[in-house]
């Protein structure tokens, strides 16, 4: 009698387990089309010539695929919009040379933003240079040792032209700098979000132990009174 009971119980247990599995399988199939997400997203942006590259990641280090990215100006007006590719990258031409803000709006209430200061953008552009800075810069080159190398360059090219314009030199330097710095930007983007380390975890647990201690202290005092 007792054994019979047991086997019935067991059969019921198995049946409920199978039912559970089927339930999950159905749910899984019904809902399964979601992109990746975790509990935190980050976006990182850098300037390269006249384009801005952005990289979006989840806290686990996974790239955000197909996440909508909006580009805003300093007043919060939307300038353009796009989606991240398979590697979480989204690149666009600089729409205007002011401070820009890129906002990543991943699903499930996740949001991240990155500000690109105006200096970073104007530094790479040629037409935005004010006459003042050009003058200052030309003063430097005429007094510094840099003028010599420019002169020799000019002689080789053509003596009639006063030399490659400031603009061109700046552009060439900017382009090569961007090229040289690209791996560093990449590294920065990769190290930007490491996620919580041991320090944070142990710190949090320490806080909780401390709170328990405080709570016990007060409840003990109340009891004594």
């Amino acid at each position: 009698m007792r054994r019979n009971d047991h086997s019935i119980n067991r059969a019921a247990c198995y049946r409920s387990k199978i039912a559970c599995l089927v339930f999950f399988a159905i749910l899984w199939v019904a809902f399964y089309h979601a992109p990746a997400f975790a509990h935190k997203v980050t976006i990182f942006a850098w300037v390269d010539g006249d384009t801005i590259h952005t990289q979006s990641k989840f806290s686990g280090g996974k790239r955000v695929k197909g996440g909508p990215v909006a580009v805003l100006d300093s007043e919060g007006n939307e300038l353009l919009e796009g989606k991240t590719d398979e590697n979480g990258m989204f690149s666009f031409k600089i729409p205007q040379r002011t401070e820009l803000k890129v906002v990543l709006k991943a699903s499930m209430g996740h949001l991240a933003e990155w500000k690109i200061p105006a200096e970073e953008i104007t530094g790479s552009g040629s037409e935005s240079n004010t006459p003042e800075t050009v003058e200052k810069a030309s003063d430097k080159t005429s007094t510094g040792t840099g003028s010599e190398s420019i002169k020799t360059d000019v002689e080789v090219l053509k003596p009639t032209i006063a030399g490659p314009g400031r603009k061109e030199i700046e552009e060439i330097i900017d382009a090569s700098l961007d090229k040289k710095l690209a791996p560093i930007y990449d590294m920065l983007a990769n190290t930007f979000d490491r996620g919580p380390g041991l320090t944070e975890i142990m710190g949090g647990i320490g806080y909780i132990i401390g709170l328990v201690g405080v709570a016990l202290y007060f409840s003990n005092r109340r009891r004594k009174e």
Binding site: Y32, P35, A36, H39, G60
Partner: peptide, 9 residues
């Protein structure tokens, strides 16, 4: 983290 397919929660 529970990585299952593309999902990581």
């Amino acid at each position: 983290h529970v990585p299952v397919g593309p999902v990581s929660v």
